[in-house]
Computed example of a mutant assay.
Amino acid sequence: MSHFASRAAFETALANLPAADDAAIAAARARQAELTKPPGSLGRLEDIAIFMASWQGHDRPVIERGRTAIFAGNHGFVVHGVSAFPASVTAAMVGNFAAGGAAINALAGMAGLDLKVVALDLERPTADFTIAPAMDEAECLAALSAGAEIVTPDLHILTVGEMGIGNTTAAAALCARSFGGSAAEWVGPGTGVDSSGIARKVAVVERALAHHGTACETPFETLRRLGGREIAAIAGAILRARQLRIPVVLDGFITCAAIAPLAAAAPGITDHCIAGHCSAEPGHRRVLERLGLSPILALDMRLGEGSGAAVAVSVIRSALAAHAQMATFAEAGVAGEL
């Protein structure tokens, strides 16, 4: 099924975002007020439980079916030396995911999430976006739909991640175009390039922004011109999750940059999203601020793969356990509030 068969379908979905369930929010808050603890004493855990309730639509949210979706793609601009690794590593790492040998395999398993990996035409990189749009319209729509198709209505939570050599460069371009600022403000070391590598990344982003200029007039155009297949797929998955009212845990810089064009036009796109962590990539903190999201964790991670988001799910599970399993004052026979 092609959820975003046309540009109009994508734009209509973005313009008609379901809202959180106010009744569920009120019910979850009322339950929090009755639990045997001082009000607010569990801090952010209380907010997380209420957030999950608001999208699951009942006062005791659960995570019985959770998924980590990892999207992989290659980029034509890597010919300019923006990464410490060759593009062939993308396919090699997809093979490692399939064999169960990557960090995300271990972390998703620990968090109780099933892992889905979608490789998007790895043998056919996107066009070099310094001289042409990364994708034509059909390619971008196909990537958006590939992301949407991984999201099923039975999920209680979705985490998203990526694999794509060079994609921090695309992420920097997307953020600069969506939120302003210079290329140098958004570019970071990514896989670990040195100062000369960072200079090359800055130059590539500057050329891309200059080449496309005002042609990036809509979220769709920004994604197709400056993004990549895996990045568009992440955007499609997040938008589809919103249609299905499924809360999403974002991972690092690239997953946040994937929705930067959407957020610039429709800030409410982040309402069903929670930031799993803040990575060591310099642009990540900056984009989280622009998206209005506060990360659950800050562990200096910079791997990608959805790894930080998967770790954060364990914290979310703790929040839901406390919310659902604690006794109320009445149940515990405790007179009055603490």
Rank of each mutant, 00 (worst) to 15 (best):
Q32T: 10
A87D: 14
T12D: 15
L174E: 11
G147E: 12
A72L: 08
E149K: 06
G227A: 07
T328D: 11
P219S: 08
I238W: 00
L45K: 03
D128M: 06
H3L: 13
K37T: 07
M110P: 00
A321K: 13
M52K: 04
G228N: 08
V248Y: 00
G192E: 05
S307T: 15
T168P: 08
V248L: 04
Q56H: 05
L226K: 05
D47T: 14
V205D: 09
A264P: 03
A172V: 13
S88R: 13
N16M: 01
A87S: 15
P261Q: 07
G43H: 04
L262T: 08
G252N: 10
A72D: 13
E64H: 14
C216D: 15
A99S: 12
D251A: 10
A142D: 15
I254N: 10
V204S: 04
D251C: 09
F85H: 12
A208M: 02
I50Y: 00
L293V: 10
I157R: 01
V62C: 13
G73S: 12
A258K: 04
L299P: 02
G66C: 14
A111I: 13
A327L: 15
A127M: 04
G147Q: 10
V334N: 05
M301R: 03
A330M: 06
P219M: 06
V193A: 08
T90C: 10
H3G: 00
D300E: 12
E162G: 10
T36W: 01
D47Y: 00
L223I: 11
S294Q: 13
C140N: 08
N16I: 04
I269L: 09
I231M: 14
D251V: 09
F10T: 09
I157N: 01
G81A: 12
K116N: 10
F51V: 09
S41W: 02
H3R: 13
E217M: 02
I234C: 12
T168C: 09
A138T: 13
